[in-house]
Design a protein around this nucleic acid. Structure first.
Lengths: 216, 216
DNA sequence: ATTACTAAGTTCCGAGTAC
DNA sequence: TGTACTCGGAACTTAGTAA
C-alpha cells in the first residue's frame, strides 16, 4: 500500500480545503510538489483509486476535491499530532524541590535495579533523584491514574534490597521520567523521588523550594 | 524535503513522546509499523542521517529519541493540519478568472437592480462583474448550501429585464461579494458572475486565468 | 537475542511522446 | 496548452545471513 501519498493528500487539502474544489493541472501540482508531471498524474490517480480524492481529469485540466475518506485519513493524522502538540493537559501534580539525603542515589545505583530500569522504563537513569514535597491526598489520586511498574528486589551477602514501584511520568510536561517508591516506605507519602535519563535539577535549573509539575 | 519516513517519525514520536527516549528494537518497530526488520533498520538510519531522530543501535537493541529537528518537522505538519481542522472551514469553490463580454456590467448598472442590490445585499456594487469558470456539478453543491436572494425584474418601454438570483459570498475568504444569476440563463452553468462593493479584479490583482476562491 | 550487509525482486520515477 | 502511456534506470524492499 502506497503511504507516502499522504503527503500529497495533505498538500492538496491545503490548497482546496477539506470541502472545496480546486481547478488545476497535473503540471502545476507537479511543480509545487516537486515531482514530474507524470508522477503527479500517477499519484493523483493512485489517490483516486484509493478513494481519498475525487479527480476529474480532462484535456483542459483537472478538478480535485478531498473525499470523506481522504478527510478521515487526514483527521487521523491530525489527532495523532494533536496528542503530541496540542493535546489537552493531562492530570498533573506539582511539588516543591526538597534536597534529599542522597539515599535515593545509593539505591538506584545498584546494578540489579539499574538493569531493570533500563528494560522496564526504557532509559538509563541519571544517578541521582529529584525529591519533591507534595500534598499527600493529591498524590494518591494522581497515582491512581498511573500504571505501576514493579522493579524486583534482590539480596546481597550483607543485606536485602526490596521491591520498588515506579510510575512513568513527564516532568514539566515533556521530560521523560519516573516516580519511584521503595516498597518499604509504605507509610504516608508526602514526598516523591523522581529519576530521569538526565539531571533534572540541572536541566530545569532547580533550587531548593522550586516548584515542579509532574504529568502523567 | 523528507519523504514518507515522516510517517515513521510520527509513529516513533507517538511511542516515545517528543522528549522521551525509548528502548526498543528494529524488529519490534518493524512489526508494529508493518515492514521488515531490515527496512525498519534502514529507515531508522535514514532518519538519523537526516537528523530527525537520535539513534543508538547496538546488539542489545536501540535507543531512540526525537531530535528538535524531528519535532520541528512534526510540528510543521501539525500546524498544516490544524489549519484544516482547527478552524471551521466553510464550504468553498474555486475557479479561474475568465474575461466576460461586459454584459454583466450592463445589466447590473440598471438603476432598478442597483437599488435592490443596496437594500438586499447591503452594498453598492462596483460597476463590473468578475467572471469565474468553475466546475458545474460542484457549483450546484456549493449553491445548495446558500440562501438565494431574489432581485425582482422590471420592464422598460424597449424591453424587459428578468429576475436575478444572488447569493452572498466571501471572495478569498474575506471580501464581501455576491454571485449573481440572471434567471434567464437556466441552462448548465460552468461560469459564475460575481459582484462586490469594490473592483475585485483590481484588489486581488487578478488576470485572465487567475485562481479565485469563493467561500460561503 | 540483536543490527545490518548483500543480492535479488519489486516498485517508483521521469524523459519521450501519443493524443 | 492538457492527460497519460511506455520503458529504462533509479530507488526501495526483503530474504538470507554474517557478526
Amino acid at each position: 500500500m502506497a503511504k507516502h501519498n499522504e503527503q500529497l493528500l495533505l498538500f492538496l487539502a491545503l490548497d482546496s480545503g477539506l470541502h472545496g474544489i480546486v481547478l488545476t493541472s497535473t503540471a502545476k501540482i507537479a511543480k509545487q510538489f516537486g515531482v514530474s508531471q507524470q508522477t503527479a498524474s500517477r499519484k493523483l490517480r493512485n489517490l483516486k483509486k484509493a478513494g481519498l480524492i475525487s479527480l476529474n481529469a480532462s484535456p483542459s485540466g483537472c478538478e480535485i476535491s478531498i473525499t470523506s475518506a481522504g478527510a478521515s485519513v487526514l483527521r487521523k493524522n491530525f489527532l495523532s499530532l494533536k496528542r503530541l502538540f496540542g493535546g489537552k493537559q493531562k492530570p498533573s501534580i506539582s511539588g516543591k524541590v526538597k534536597t534529599g539525603l542522597g539515599e535515593g542515589r545509593y539505591y538506584i545505583s545498584r546494578p540489579v535495579y539499574l538493569k531493570q530500569f533500563k528494560t522496564k522504563l526504557g532509559f538509563n537513569p541519571f544517578l541521582g533523584t529529584l525529591n519533591l514535597r507534595v500534598s499527600n491526598n493529591i498524590l494518591e489520586q494522581f497515582l491512581l491514574a498511573l500504571q505501576p511498574i514493579e522493579i524486583a528486589g534482590f539480596k546481597t551477602d550483607e543485606r536485602s534490597f526490596g521491591k520498588i514501584l515506579v510510575f512513568k511520568v513527564l516532568v514539566e510536561g515533556k521530560q521523560q521520567a519516573a516516580i519511584i517508591f521503595p516498597e518499604r516506605t509504605a507509610h504516608a507519602r508526602d514526598e516523591i523521588e523522581i529519576i530521569a535519563p538526565i539531571n533534572l535539577r540541572k536541566k530545569f535549573k532547580l533550587k531548593e523550594g522550586s516548584k515542579v509539575s509532574v504529568f502523567s
